[in-house]
């Protein structure tokens, strides 16, 4: 027993010796507290503003619907770098003089400069298919547009010239931002939420695009398009898997194929019903 006690005391001394040396023999470095995560309240830093821009770019702004690697619209990673050249291009019709103004202009007045090959069909690249994102379904505020510009300038590796929003404006817009993407309550909301209006026309859409078939008309023929498919089933498939059947005169791979993961069941149903002409309000 005496031996056991000795062993225990010895081991105790060794361990406590190590801990004691750590405490008294080594300098104490207090690790930094975890960095505060971007909380968009009141004053925000440029980093947070850029992060907000990224969020809007990928989410609420629905920019990535078209500006993606599928080639539906020009990629924007380099836009801040090429902006000065574009301003010098004779085809440029706008009033911008700086990169910041140029990006802003192309968001609210997309036709001021249309990148070759990305114009509306038949307009010889003079009219852009892009909607004015400060209006309509997307309807970004000035602060949010500023954030997107800041993000684009940052991605492009150029200097961010956008001024930070003053406290109130920043707080106001950012607080409502996360809650913005909510479930659509009717077909009209659903159309704008998923940006259908960018490419399609429909009675419920005020100003639609013509890159995709006119949805006001497809309801009538949907039931006959595919063997064994009801109209409802065909439209459902066309939304969930757009490349299954390509309407004549339109290109494959144009419509995003990820609506299945984005829409709620009710939204999908509302859209189908609207296309079928079952919903009129």
């Amino acid at each position: 027993m005496g031996q056991l006690l000795k062993i225990v005391v010895f081991s105790l001394c060794v361990v406590c010796g190590f801990a004691g040396y750590t405490t008294f023999g080594l300098p104490l470095i207090i690790p930094e507290a975890p960095p505060v995560e971007e909380k968009l309240t009141g004053e925000i830093t440029m980093d947070q503003y850029i992060a907000l821009g990224k969020k809007i770019f990928e989410g609420k702004g629905t920019c990535t619907l078209c500006h993606n690697s599928l080639g539906r619209a020009p990629l924007l990673e380099q836009v801040a770098q090429v902006a000065p050249e574009r301003l010098k291009d004779p085809r440029y019709k706008g009033k911008a003089t700086t990169t910041e103004e140029y990006i802003h202009e192309s968001m609210v007045e997309p036709s001021a400069y249309v990148v070759a090959g990305f114009g509306k069909k038949g307009t010889n690249d003079t009219v852009s298919p892009m909607p004015n994102i400060s209006k309509g379904a997307i309807g970004l505020s000035d602060v949010e547009i500023g954030a997107v510009i800041a993000f684009l300038q940052d991605v492009g590796g150029t200097e961010v010239t956008v001024a930070l929003p003053s406290g109130d404006a920043g707080a106001g817009s950012t607080e409502e931002e996360p809650a913005e993407i909510k479930v659509a309550e009717n077909a009209k909301e659903a159309f704008s939420k998923f940006g259908c209006d960018t490419c399609h026309m429909h009675p419920l859409i005020e100003e639609g695009g013509d890159m995709g078939p006119d949805l006001g008309k497809v309801g009538a023929t949907a039931g006959t398009r595919k063997e064994g498919y009801s109209a409802e089933r065909f439209i459902r498939e066309s939304i969930v898997n757009p490349n299954a059947v390509i309407a004549e005169g339109f290109d494959a791979d144009t419509m995003p194929d990820d609506f299945a993961t984005q829409m709620t069941v009710s939204e999908l149903d509302m859209i189908i019903n609207a296309i079928l002409g079952n919903e009129s309000s």
Binding site: F18, A19, T22, T23, L26, L28, P31, P34
Partner: peptide, 11 residues
């Protein structure tokens, strides 16, 4: 979510 100091960890 803090990173403990060395003496803290030692004890």
């Amino acid at each position: 979510a803090f990173t403990p100091t060395l003496p803290f960890a030692a004890w």
